[in-house]
Design a binder for these strands. Structure first.
Lengths: 252, 252
DNA sequence: CGGGAGCTTGAGGGAAGTCAACCGGGGTGG
DNA sequence: CCACCCCGGTTGACTTCCCTCAAGCTCCCG
């Protein structure tokens, strides 16, 4: 069966970090998971506005949630990195109102919405973990809204790099680096600007020695400076392991 | 006791619309609700970044969720209208990372986070309803992000008016009208622009006869036209009563 | 009557978009 | 194996949208 296979994929899931899942909960989830699927870059896991009853967990690679305006402009409204849930909305809604597309090669496992719900009825921890995840996602989206509404292009870019550096967990200190598997055009769709302008802002960050970019490998010599430029304060991510324990404490 | 008093306040709550709450669930919630509080305009129900273990339901008036950047700019990341939950985040997180402030005179009731959670352990419908609400809120926030990132000032304003017209449920047809209890400065904080520019865009909508504004009373002579200008498609709200039944059907 | 809050309008400047051209690299097909 | 092409990055010139600053206006309330 795939349950043992998937179980390891679930190990590092954000859901686990919530601290709401017991070992049995985790095992129960692993047992209803479908076989992992390999995906090429640039394909839709879920298409915009479609009905689906399957919840996808990303186990490797990157994906994004996106929406398009009537006149064709695209906005990426969430980055999905390994261990994230692609379309949590399907847990409660029949129809997603965004699409999910891979940004790089990726693998994902599917969970049947109905089976997750059924599990949740017996195991409150599972529903709690999903709720926790929805709320954290909300916090991130709120931060994006603040950034889109009230920051300059340079600040938005710097802030995004800060967020990614933290979410990827590659170390938050000076000298931290990570790989950005996205084109400048996709960055533009995240940041609400033009690919051309992304390029210029990147150039400026490089010129100011705030980042070092070799191809798509980003290195941050001085994280505090990058945070300062982006006006970044990472507490909204709620994803630091330190938070999991406090969550557990509140279970009573 | 206040339970009967609060019960009526809960009647029209968004939570009810989810279709996940049974009558008993509703009653159980009403019993743990604190007495309603009257609030003046412009006061914080919850301050930014504070720890709180109380979840507030708005029963009358308007409020908003907001965040501020390090350099003092403010962005409103959500409007709270009667029957909405002000700080759902507190259901799962110790610390909210936004503030909630009344925009007009308002009344709210508080629910103890721990007691709601305890209820949820016995009554899965309650947790489900909260999760549903978090996910709908997410959908709205995603739509705001799309708007902030990819629409012009005029489109953003038009879209907001469309959303409000729908959420307030005053009728979505031509001739629909509603009261906007917010200053242009607050609109600016919602739309990610300047109060001055809000004024100009309002002027343009008026000049184009898309809206009629007398003070803070907005009338929409041609809703289809307003939707067209704002590139609005309301399906993301998931709040139409029609949706509640389909949600119920999926409970099994 | 004075004063403040919110609305309205104008003039000028700056941030970001648009259009366009060029470059480098990695595929692919002849 | 080379030529070609397409995609993504880079840069420049010009335009446009929106911000900034500033003043005057209308209410409403003390």
């Amino acid at each position: 069966m795939n349950s043992s296979h998937v179980s390891s994929a679930l190990e590092s899931t954000q859901l686990i970090r919530s601290g709401f899942l017991s070992d049995e909960d985790r095992q129960a989830l692993a047992e209803i998971a479908a076989a992992p699927r390999s995906l090429k870059a640039g394909v839709d896991l879920v298409s915009e506005g479609v009905r689906t009853d399957s919840i996808h967990l990303l186990t490797s690679g990157w994906a994004c949630r996106y929406k398009t305006t009537r006149d064709g402009a695209r906005q990426i409204i969430g980055l999905v990195v390994p261990s994230d849930i692609c379309n949590l909305d399907s847990f409660m809604l029949d129809k997603v109102d965004f699409g999910v597309r891979t940004l790089s090669m990726a693998t994902a496992v599917g969970l049947s919405r109905d089976r997750v719900r059924a599990l949740g009825a017996e195991r409150p921890g599972i529903t709690r973990a999903f709720t926790w995840f929805a709320i954290v996602e909300n916090a991130i989206l709120g931060e994006w809204a603040l950034s889109l509404g009230r920051q300059t292009a340079l600040q938005r870019l710097a802030r995004l790099l800060c967020e990614l550096s933290m979410r990827l967990g590659d170390g938050h200190g000076d000298g931290a680096g990570f790989k950005l598997p996205v084109t400048q055009e996709q960055l533009a769709d995240i940041l609400g600007m033009t690919a051309v302008h992304v390029n210029r802002m990147m150039k400026q960050l490089r010129a100011d020695s705030v980042i070092v970019a070799e191809g798509r490998q980003i290195t941050v010599p001085d994280m505090a400076e990058l945070c300062r430029v982006g006006g970044f304060d990472g507490s909204y991510l709620h994803a630091a392991p330190s938070n999991a324990e406090t969550a557990v404490n509140h279970l009573g």
